[in-house]
C-alpha cells in the first residue's frame, strides 16, 4: 500500500520548458527511494512537489489517497513530510537541540544521542559543528517530526565518503526500522545502490527500477 502517489504530474518553468511531462509513481512506507538524473532534469522540482512546496501544472499528488492540493499544502508540509537539504538548512541561532525542537514536541536529546551526539554537542551553536554533524541534526529534526515521509535533497552532497556512508545508513534505518518513506534526490550511485528503489528522471520522464 503506497503512502504517497503522483499521478500524471506536469510541471514547467514559465509555462515553456517542461521539466516533468506527466510523471507517475508510488512510494511506500518503510522503503528508501533514490531519484537520480542529470543536473536540471527536475529532481528537486519533483521533491518540492512531493513536499507541497509547489503545485504541479496538472496531475495530482496524493498522500494516503488524498489530494494534497485539497487538504492544503501548508498542512501537508506541517504534518506529513520532513525535509533534509544538501546544505543542512539549520537555523543558525539555535542549538542542535533547539533545531530539533523547532516543530517537535518530543524531547530532542534522546533523538540526537541516537544519532551520536553528546549532551554538550547538542547544546553547541550549530555553526560550530562539522558538516556531518549538521546533517545529522537535520536528520534528527526530520525524525523528531511526526512526518511519515522524509524528503532528502542531496543529503550527502557536501560530505566526505565515510560521513556520507554514515548518513546513508541512518536514512536507511529511518525507512526500515522506523517505517518511514524516505525519498532521496541524489547524484550518488553509491547511495542509489543502498535504496530499495531507484527512479531515473530523463527528459521529463521517470523510469523506475530496483535500486539494487
Amino acid at each position: 500500500m503506497s503512502i504517497m502517489e503522483i499521478e500524471g504530474v506536469r510541471y514547467s518553468y514559465d509555462g515553456r520548458r517542461n521539466v516533468l511531462k506527466g510523471v507517475s509513481a508510488k512510494f511506500e512506507a518503510g522503503k528508501m527511494y533514490a531519484v537520480l538524473g542529470p543536473s536540471g532534469c527536475g529532481k528537486t522540482t519533483l521533491l518540492s512537489l512531493l513536499g507541497g512546496l509547489d503545485s504541479p501544472a496538472s496531475g495530482r499528488i496524493l498522500y494516503q489517497g488524498e489530494d494534497i492540493a485539497k487538504t492544503g499544502l501548508a498542512e501537508h508540509r506541517r504534518s506529513h513530510v520532513a525535509f533534509i537539504f544538501q546544505s543542512y538548512n539549520l537555523i543558525d541561532y539555535l542549538t542542535p537541540m533547539e533545531n530539533v525542537a523547532l516543530t517537535s514536541k518530543l524531547p530532542p536529546l534522546p533523538i540526537l544521542e541516537r544519532l551520536g551526539f553528546t549532551p554538550e554537542e547538542a547544546k553547541r551553536n550549530v555553526l560550530k559543528l562539522s558538516g556531518g554533524q549538521q546533517q545529522r541534526v537535520a536528520i534528527a529534526r526530520a525524525l523528531a517530526s511526526d512526518a511519515q515521509v522524509i524528503l532528502a535533497d542531496e543529503p550527502t552532497g557536501n560530505l566526505d565518503e565515510d560521513t556520507a556512508a554514515g548518513i546513508t545508513g541512518i536514512l536507511k534505518e529511518c525507512a526500515h526500522k522506523s517505517g518511514k518513506c524516505v525519498v532521496i534526490v541524489t547524484h550518488s550511485n553509491e547511495l542509489a545502490k543502498s535504496a530499495d528503489a531507484a527512479m531515473r528522471l530523463r527528459k521529463g520522464e521517470l523510469q523506475i527500477s530496483d535500486g539494487r
Binding site: 512546496l53 508540509r77 506541517r78 504534518s79 539549520l90
Partner: peptide, 13 residues
C-alpha cells in the same frame, strides 16, 4: 530569507 524558507519547509506558516 533562508531561515524563512526553512521554517516554511518545516510547515511553519
Amino acid at each position: 530569507v533562508h531561515e524563512s524558507g526553512v521554517q516554511l519547509a518545516l510547515g511553519i506558516s
